[in-house]
């Protein structure tokens, strides 16, 4: 091709063709309620009137039963590691330097996990059933965000056996 083009012109071999999708993400009633209370430093879930599972963050309905969830439940910021992954590859746009631990955590009083970071621990020591607690930012920095909790750190409590993960009451785990 290049021999056919006039001098002093670079041959075009590629073009920039970006696509930008612009969203306005609406939280919806139940997540908005959840985030409004996270702003006050309180984790809340919603209990299904049929199966009694407590969802966090609440979506306003029970995925299993298909019914609205209206009963609000205050949860603990103590939680149990249900599963985790050690992230070793940097993620574009993410300022956290790998390796770091991302875990599915079930807060006491809930039956469903959410995803958050773990720190103040040796990554190699993180394990399923481990007890952890949220480390909150200073109150003046709280917003409508789960980032109000910087990360979860290990608690000096006995591990929760696998069959009891997701079934710990809000009062906590006696071991």
């Amino acid at each position: 091709m290049s021999e056919q083009t006039t001098e002093n012109t670079d041959v075009i071999t590629g073009i920039e063709a970006p696509i930008y999708l612009k969203y306005n993400f609406t939280a919806g009633a139940a997540p908005a309620r959840f985030l409004t209370q996270v702003k006050e430093g309180v984790l809340t879930g919603q209990r299904c009137p049929q199966c009694a599972q407590v969802y966090v963050p609440p979506r306003g309905s029970c995925a299993a039963c298909g019914v609205p969830t209206e009963e609000e439940v205050v949860l603990s910021d103590k939680a149990t590691v249900q599963s985790f992954t050690i992230v070793s590859i940097p993620i574009p746009g993410n300022s956290i330097e790998p390796p770091f631990v991302v875990a599915n955590l079930v807060p006491d009083g809930a039956n469903i996990s959410f995803i958050h970071l773990m720190s103040e621990c040796d990554n190699a020591d993180v394990h399923i059933g481990q007890r952890v607690q949220g480390v909150w930012k200073p109150q003046e920095e709280w917003g409508y965000s789960m980032d109000n909790i910087r990360y979860f750190k290990p608690l000096d409590e006995p591990d929760v056996p696998v069959e009891k993960i997701g079934k710990i009451p809000v009062e906590g785990w006696e071991g």
């Binding site: 075009i12 071999t13 590629g14 073009i15 920039e16 063709a17 970006p18 696509i19 930008y20 999708l21 612009k22 969203y23 306005n24 993400f25 609406t26 939280a27 919806g28 009633a29 997540p31 908005a32 309620r33 985030l35 409004t36 209206e70 609000e72 409508y144």
Partner: peptide, 22 residues
Amino acid sequence: MSQPDVLHQAFELGFTYTRSTG
């Protein structure tokens, strides 16, 4: 329970493709 204001957040997803023209 009282209903809070519905929260919303702008979010842009970019696919920064470079295409080969052939």
